[in-house]
């Protein structure tokens, strides 16, 4: 690992540090998850916040549409503030925490992470499509890898274990057919 020269020592050019060992990262993440449950009774999550921010936007543009859609109604119906939920501060906290770790470890950089044989544009399109599908599935399953697999996995929720295996099943099932994207 190279150390950045002294002249370049700005806050955004910290020396890049390697990632932590996966088991260590896992233990820290597990302790965070435990304290979330221990203090608040809730686990971790983020996809719910995406839906709530959507609901906020729809509510600002067309409140009557919210009141006619049973799913949005639950989030933002009437006087309800869709952001009034534990998952919203977790969402923004996670954005900030990711940024802090990237900054501290010298990984703040505009770049595209992709497989070696595709263009940036293809990667962006695929990332966008993946995001659409993932969040669609996450709302259907009532939680994503965080809200279902991690949180539900740790509380031994039977349904969450089914969701977890379905996520891995879906990804492994398709991995061979999209191998050009990554290898």
């Amino acid at each position: 690992m190279t150390t950045a020269p002294v002249t370049k020592k700005s806050i955004f050019k910290r020396p890049e540090k390697p990632y932590t060992h996966p088991y260590f990262g896992g233990v820290v993440l597990g302790i965070v998850l435990f304290f979330a449950f221990f203090l608040t009774g809730n686990g971790l999550g983020s996809s719910g916040a995406t839906a709530r921010i959507d609901a906020l936007i729809v509510d600002a543009i067309s409140p009557s549409h919210v009141d006619n859609n049973p799913y949005l109604l639950k989030l933002a119906g009437g006087d309800k503030n869709p952001l009034d939920d534990w998952i919203v501060p977790v969402f923004f906290g996670a954005l900030l925490g990711g940024f802090a770790s990237g900054w501290f470890n010298g990984r703040l950089k505009f770049m595209t992470t992709k497989g070696p044989h595709i263009s940036d544009r293809t990667r962006w399109l695929m990332a966008f499509l993946g995001g659409v599908l993932f969040l669609y599935g996450a709302r259907m399953a009532r939680g994503c890898t965080s809200g279902q697999a991690l949180s539900g996995g740790a509380t031994l929720s039977a349904g969450s274990w089914a969701v977890m295996f379905a996520i891995f099943g879906g990804a492994y099932g398709l991995a061979y057919f999209v191998r050009k994207l990554w290898n």
Partner: peptide
């Protein structure tokens, strides 16, 4: 929903968080 998430995972390369 989990299967759809899996497809999104391998195409998009991320999960929401």
């Amino acid at each position: 929903g989990g299967l759809i998430m899996g497809v999104g995972f391998i195409i998009g390369g991320f999960c929401p968080t």
